[in-house]
Every structure is written in structure tokens, then in C-alpha cells.
Design a protein around this nucleic acid. Structure first.
Length: 438
DNA sequence: TCTGGGGTCCTAGGACCC
DNA sequence: TCTGGGGTCCTAGGACCC
């Protein structure tokens, strides 16, 4: 019907638009890799991590184990659960290898995370056959060549393909015929919609909206009242499957951050300086490696009850010097703590850089400095600032050759009680510009 | 006995400018 | 001197995703 209305002059009016978007998603990725590397772990409930479950095998999920769950709780639910240390370098290598397989079928691959990607195969059907045929071939090749289970959803839009791959899991393939979209979507729970989490799901459920079909038949006004204007509109678009964004092979990062959980600690000057020095050191190094500088710095402090506060500062020019950013982060955290004098302990510190600009655009002289009224500002373009950048560049070079531990600022010497392996941090931080295609 | 680390996007309110 | 509307930018907080 839609085709008849929209394109009455095309010869293919009666032909439904083709389902050429694939969403490929590796099943229980970290856990599957562990089972691949150690055959004795296969078909057993395992969890990657220790204090917190980073990933659980399907055998463990069947017992209620979920990622993000604390270790003691997971063991409680599943006493024969095996915890395995993460082979983080292997996750990266195998994830990359799978992406290589995908790119053998089309250059239009949008990698969204280490284990997940969208493909647009419209231009490849003359080479490899129908999208469903291609999806089956990809799954077989990933299983045969890499050894990992991969689920794929095939549909007309990215969002629907993603829902289809969720339905296909584990180790399955679901193709949604364009003529069958409503019949497929309507009975599914709203939680399958990208962007519907616990809070939104609960609000919808409170109004009796549990399935995507029920969501679609809800008026825009009611939806807006429940979840806000933009969210309501977005939800409407997704549920009625009219969101037609294409596959993007390259997306640039909009922010970079680092955080550290601290247990319960009194925020002494020493703790703040050491932790912020470490966090800024990490993130500023990535910033410079990307050739960027940041105009906005945001810090986050979490208290014992998991409530968190943020403070941010924005400058006219981008900054990328470790020392300057550390000074600023410290000032912001102290300001945040001063606003919450009743909090004796903190549980997390985070640093994030945004409003990223090309480093070449950093002005070198006569800076305007920060707008008035904010923390004593650095002078991003001052000679002192240029000297700091030169120091950073030298350190970056040394580290690139000899590793992170080879050089650094004295205050950054990392305490041995790091709660998370360095390798996991390095893996997790590959979420930005590295993804998005060859 | 209360959760890791790295991201994206949205909202509401205020400052400021035209 | 007061009033109004619209746009842009910034800040703080929150929901969500992998």
C-alpha cells in the first residue's frame, strides 16, 4: 500500500522493499571465546570476570547468571559456576577476525562494538545471492574459520535487524520478510526495542504497555506524557519501524573517558591527586593519539549510596596536556565535594573529555582563556601550555615504543590494588574511532 | 551484601544575544 | 524602562547500550 502511494511511477510498485540489512552478533562473546580456547569449559556454566560477571555462558544464563552481577550472587544462583580469567587480547583478535569475515561479503560494515556489526548487503546480492543466503554463509564461515557461534538478523531496517538477531539467539538466523514486519514485531516485548531499559520499561508497563504492538497503538500524546517528547517520538519511530538510518562505516568519537571504582575511600588530597592523575593520563594519551584536544572536561564522583554528581568546565580552546587537564579535574572534583560536605566516603571517580577538536586547531598564542566565573583556568595557548604538550609528546613516543609503564608522571604510579586488569581497560576503550570500518 | 569500564543521547534550566 | 520571542551554548543529571 505504501509503495503504491509513494511511488506510483516506478515499475516495481508492487514489489516490497528488500530486506538487505544484517545485524551480526556473536553469542556470549567473552564466554564463547573462553570455551573455544579451553574445550573442557564447553557446555558448562562459566563466567568471565571475578568480582563482577563480565560475561556468562548460555549454560550459566540458564541458571540466572547475568553480566554485571556480583560474583557472590552468581555463585549463589549457580554453585558449579566456573569463573575464568579473561584472555582479553584473544577477544580483540577474534573479534577483529570475525569482522574480517563480514567485510568479505560487503565493505558496508558498521561495527558497533567488539562483537557486533550491521551490514548493508544490497550491493552484494549479485555476488553472493539473497541476503538470507549470505547470512547463512557468514554464520557457517565464522563457525568454521573462527570457531564461534554468531547470530544474525536480516530485515529492511537496522533496528528491525537488531531485534531479529536478538530473537535468533543463541546461534540462530532470523529473516524478517518486509511483508511480515508487523506480524513479527507486534507480539514482542517492548524491552527488545533499542533504548527501552528498566526505567522506560517500567513506566510503559505501568500503563499496560508490554508489547511492541501495544506500543504502536498508543497515541503520540500518551507516549510523550509517559517518556518525554524526544523519547516518545523515537519510540514511536522504532516501534512502527520507520527509522531508516543507513549503515555508517565510520563514526568519530564524540567523547573519551576513564573511570575507576575505589571501594569505599575517604577523598583525601592524596587519593584524589593519584587517581585523577592516573585517569587523566590514560584518557589524555588516547586524546593525543587521535590528534584531538578537548574543550570540555567532566568529572564524576560517586558516593556510597551510588548517587553520583558531575561537574564540568568548557573552554574556548581545546586542551590536551596531561598536567593541565589533571589540575582542572582536581579543581572540579574538589568543587563537587565541597557541595556535598556530608559525604565522608566516595566510591568512584570518573573523567570524561568531550567537544573534541582537532589538535591542529589549538591556538598557540593570545588565548582568551576560560569564560569568567569558572575554576582558575589554564591558558590553553600559553607558552607554558605548549611546553606541557611537548613533554606529553615525548612521553607518548617513549610509551609507544616501550609500553605504558616505561614512563609517566611521578604522581601516576599506579597503586597495585587496581580492581580491574589493565588489559580489560585497554579492551574496553576500543569503543570509539577504532571501530567503524577499514 | 549493593555493581566494572567505556560510551551515546536527551532534558531542563539558565545565561546571553538579537 | 519594560516586555516578548527565538536561538545558541553551557551545566547537571539521567537513561541506556555493549
Amino acid at each position: 500500500m505504501r509503495a503504491n502511494i509513494c511511488s506510483p511511477n516506478l515499475g516495481s510498485v508492487d514489489q516490497a522493499p528488500a530486506a538487505t540489512i544484517l545485524h551480526a552478533d556473536l553469542d556470549a562473546f567473552y564466554a564463547s571465546v573462553e570455551q573455544l580456547l579451553d574445550p573442557t569449559l564447553r557446555s558448562r556454566p562459566i563466567a568471565v570476570g571475578g568480582g563482577v560477571v563480565l560475561a556468562a555462558s548460555y549454560e550459566a544464563r540458564a541458571r540466572g547468571v547475568r553480566s554485571g552481577m556480583v560474583g557472590w550472587r552468581a555463585r549463589q544462583l549457580c554453585p558449579d559456576l566456573t569463573f575464568v580469567g579473561g584472555h582479553f587480547a584473544e577477544y580483540q583478535r577474534l573479534g577483529d577476525e570475525v569482522m574480517g569475515v563480514l567485510r568479505d561479503f560487503t565493505p558496508l560494515v558498521e561495527r558497533v562494538s567488539i562483537d557486533e556489526a550491521f551490514l548493508d548487503v544490497a550491493g552484494s546480492v549479485h555476488l553472493f545471492g539473497a541476503p538470507s543466503t549470505m547470512a547463512a554463509a557468514i554464520r557457517a564461515q565464522v563457525r568454521g574459520q573462527v570457531g564461534l557461534p554468531l547470530s544474525i538478523g536480516v530485515a529492511r531496517t537496522k533496528h528491525l535487524a537488531k531485534i531479529a538477531s536478538q530473537v535468533a539467539k543463541p546461534d540462530g538466523l532470523v529473516v524478517v520478510d518486509p511483508a511480515e514486519e508487523r506480524r513479527f514485531l507486534d507480539p514482542l516485548p517492548v524491552a527488545l526495542i533499542w533504548g527501552v531499559g528498566p526505567a522506560t520499561g517500567a513506566r510503559l508497563a505501568a500503563s499496560g504497555i508490554r508489547t511492541i504492538g501495544e506500543l504502536v497503538s498508543t497515541s503520540p500524546e500518551v507516549l510523550e506524557r509517559l517518556v518525554g517528547r524526544a523519547n516518545g517520538a523515537k519510540l514511536g519511530r522504532l516501534a512502527s519501524n520507520v527509522d531508516l538510518r543507513g549503515v555508517e562505516t565510520a563514526r568519530r568519537a564524540r567523547s573519551m573517558g576513564a573511570q575507576a571504582a575505589l571501594g569505599r575511600r575517604r577523598p583525601t588530597p592524596d587519593l584524589l591527586a593519584t587517581t585523577l592523575g592516573y585517569l587523566v593520563d590514560r584518557v589524555a594519551g588516547r586524546l593525543r593519539a587521535a590528534g584531538k584536544a578537548a574543550r570540555t572536561l567532566t568529572v564524576r564522583v560517586r558516593f556510597r549510596d551510588l548517587r553520583a554528581v558531575t561537574r564540568s568546565a568548557t573552554w574556548m580552546e581545546g586542551i590536551c596536556a596531561t598536567v593541565t587537564l589533571t589540575e582542572q579535574a582536581l579543581a572540579l572534583v574538589q568543587a563537587a565535594l565541597a557541595d556535598h560536605p556530608g559525604e565522608a566516603e566516595i566510591t568512584l571517580l570518573a573523567v570524561s573529555l568531550s567537544q573534541l577538536v582537532d589538535e591542529g586547531l589549538v591556538q598557540l598564542e593570545l588565548p582568551l582563556g576560560p569564560p569568567g566565573g569558572r575554576p582558575a583556568g589554564p591558558r590553553p595557548g600559553s607558552p607554558a601550555e605548549a611546553a606541557r604538550r611537548a613533554t606529553d609528546r615525548s612521553l607518548d613516543v617513549v610509551r609507544a615504543r616501550f609500553g605504558r609503564a616505561a614512563a609517566g608522571y611521578a604522581s601516576v604510579a599506579l597503586s597495585g590494588d587496581a580492581r580491574v586488569p589493565e588489559a580489560f581497560r585497554e579492551l574496553a576503550e576500543r569503543g570509539g574511532e577504532e571501530y567503524g570500518g577499514p
